[in-house]
Structure formats: structure tokens, C-alpha cells
């Protein structure tokens, strides 16, 4: 049996996972999100990466960004490296895509602040 804490929401449910052959028996979750979390966490854990990128603008040296969806956990540091080598040259708004399909994942890097448009 394995225990893990669901990180989907602040409830932080303690999940119990029994592996029975290929079947996973999961308990402890307050909602079905916990079920889905435990399944991916057991097979291919996924995370959202939130960081910043350097900009060409003096008043806003860095702009907050994130992946628009979760990416495989083991790719976190490759994504960080890619973000570190990127310099934003144009003023973009919140939600705009800065990098598509980062590091070969399905995720785009989007701006999470509107500061450059204000």
C-alpha cells in the first residue's frame, strides 16, 4: 500500500493506494479529482510550472509565466532551462502564448500578468 497527499486543492486529502495487479484501489479522496490525481501520480506524475521570463523592458525586468497545462514532472528542469534562455522582446498581455509546445510537451508557455500592457 502507498500513501500520498493529493495536491490538486487545498484540502490536501491523504490518499491510500492499493496496488492489486494492474488495478489501483484508491481511497481517502473527498472528490473525484483525487482519484485522477492518484492514478497519474502512480504512473506519470504531472505538474504545472510557474516561473518568469526575462524581458527587454527596463521597467519590468521579468514577466510571470506558466505552462498552460501540466507537464511530466521529470521535464520541470528542462522547461526551466528553456525559460531561462528566453527573452521577451514584445509587450504581451495576460494569457498570450510566448512559447509553443515547450520542450516537446503539449504545453504552451503563457503570460500570467498583464503588466506589460498597462
Amino acid at each position: 500500500m502507498k500513501e500520498m497527499v493529493c495536491i490538486v486543492c487545498p484540502n490536501g486529502c491523504l490518499l491510500h493506494i492499493d496496488t492489486d495487479g494492474n488495478d489501483l484501489k484508491i481511497s481517502g479522496q473527498k472528490c473525484k479529482k483525487g482519484l485522477a490525481f492518484a492514478k497519474t501520480e502512480m504512473t506519470a506524475p504531472m505538474r504545472t510550472v510557474c516561473s518568469t521570463v526575462k524581458t527587454a523592458f527596463k521597467d519590468v525586468p521579468v514577466l510571470p509565466v506558466r505552462t498552460d497545462r501540466e507537464i511530466p514532472k521529470e521535464k520541470i528542469f528542462s522547461v526551466m532551462a528553456a525559460l531561462n534562455s528566453f527573452v521577451l522582446q514584445e509587450r504581451c498581455g495576460i494569457g498570450e502564448v510566448l512559447i509553443e509546445k515547450i520542450c516537446g510537451t503539449d504545453a504552451d508557455i503563457i503570460a500570467t500578468s498583464n503588466i506589460l500592457k498597462e
Binding site: 526575462k54 521579468v62 532551462a81 525559460l83 534562455s85 528566453f86 527573452v87
Partner: peptide
């Protein structure tokens, strides 16, 4: 120093 070098690290 800066968090972001702006070049590949």
C-alpha cells in the same frame, strides 16, 4: 545577479 541569464544555461 539576475535569475535569468537570457542565454542557454
Amino acid at each position: 545577479g539576475e535569475t535569468k541569464g537570457g542565454d542557454a544555461q
